[in-house]
Design a protein around this nucleic acid. Structure first.
Lengths: 146, 146
DNA sequence: TTAAGTGCAAAATCTTTGCAAATGT
DNA sequence: ACATTTGCAAAGATTTTGCACTTAA
C-alpha cells in the first residue's frame, strides 16, 4: 500500500479482530460498491483470483461478526450485503425490506423503510421480521414502460 | 383401492393432467396433513421408499402446475406447502406471510392474514409480495414461557 | 398399447473439511 | 515468531441428467 492512511474497510476489519488481507478487502469493496445484495456466484465471477473456498470462509466470518448479512433470493441462493452499522455479532438487525427484482434479479436492501406493524395470529411472537417483496425495481420498471 | 370413490388428491391430479401414481398421492397427503411447509429432507425421511430423484421431479412438477409452492426457510432450504386454490399454472398467489419459527424450524403459511399495505420507495413496483417473518410459533412460545 | 412416471446409476454442482504453505501483526 | 488466513485436494452433500423398466390410462 502506498499510503499509510487507513480506509474504512481496514478500520472495520480491525474492529472485529480480523486481519486485513487482500481477499477480505476485496470482498468488502465489492459489496460496498453495490447497493444491492450480491450472490456468491456473482462474487466468484468478479473475483476469479480468489479461491472459492476462501470466499465461503470470508463470507461466513463476516456474517458471524455482523459485517454482512445474508438474504435469499427467489431461487434460494444466498445474496450478501453490508450490514448497517447497528448489527452486532451474531445478532443482525435485519428488519428492513428485501426487494427482489424479478427482471434483473437484483436484491435491494431497503433499509430506511417504515414498516407498518404486522399483526400476527394469536400465539405467534415475532422476534424479528425479515421481509421480502418481489416485483420490479425502478430501473427495470422504467425499461418495461417504454 | 377398495372403493372407486375418488378422493380430493385424485381429482387434483386429474385436473392437472397428471397420472395418479402412488408416490404423487403420498406426497399430496403428506403435504396436506401439515399446516406447515415441509422441507425436502423431511419429506425424504418420511417417504424413504420413494426415490430421492422421483421426489425432486414430483415436487417440481407440482410447483409448475401450481399445486404446491416453495418457500425458503432461514437456512435457504426449500420448504413445500399446498397452494391455496387460486394458484394458477406458473403464477402463484403467494401473498401471505411465511412465518419461520426459529425454535422448531417449522414454516407456517399464514394465509388468512390481512397484510397492511407497504409503501415502497418511488419507482419500485411490487408485482406480488412474498413476506417472511421469523420468531416463535405458538407452540414453542408456550414451551419457553414455562 | 403407449406415453408418462419411476428407479437406479452416474454426472454435475455446491459446500465443507483437513492440512501444508503463505501472510499479517 | 506465531496465530491467522489462504489455497489446494479431497470428502460430503445436493441437484440434475440419461436410460431402461414399470405402470396408469
Amino acid at each position: 500500500m502506498a499510503l499509510s492512511h487507513k480506509n474504512n474497510f481496514e478500520v472495520l476489519l480491525e474492529k472485529h479482530h480480523l486481519k486485513k488481507t487482500g481477499p477480505r478487502l476485496k470482498v468488502l469493496s465489492m459489496l460496498s460498491a453495490k447497493n444491492v445484495a450480491t450472490s456468491q456466484p456473482d462474487l466468484e465471477g468478479v473475483m476469479s483470483d480468489i479461491d472459492r473456498v476462501t470466499l465461503y470462509r470470508i463470507l461466513s466470518a463476516f456474517e458471524e461478526k455482523g459485517i454482512i448479512h445474508k438474504v435469499f433470493d427467489l431461487n434460494g441462493t444466498a445474496n450478501y450485503a453490508m450490514c448497517s452499522s447497528d448489527c452486532e455479532e451474531n445478532h443482525h438487525h435485519d428488519e428492513h425490506l428485501h426487494f427482489n427484482c424479478t427482471a434483473c434479479k437484483n436484491v435491494y436492501c431497503l433499509d430506511d423503510l417504515n414498516l407498518p406493524p404486522i399483526k400476527l395470529p394469536a400465539g405467534f411472537k415475532s422476534e424479528g421480521f425479515t421481509l421480502y417483496a418481489s416485483g420490479l425495481c425502478p430501473k427495470c420498471n422504467k425499461a418495461i414502460e417504454k
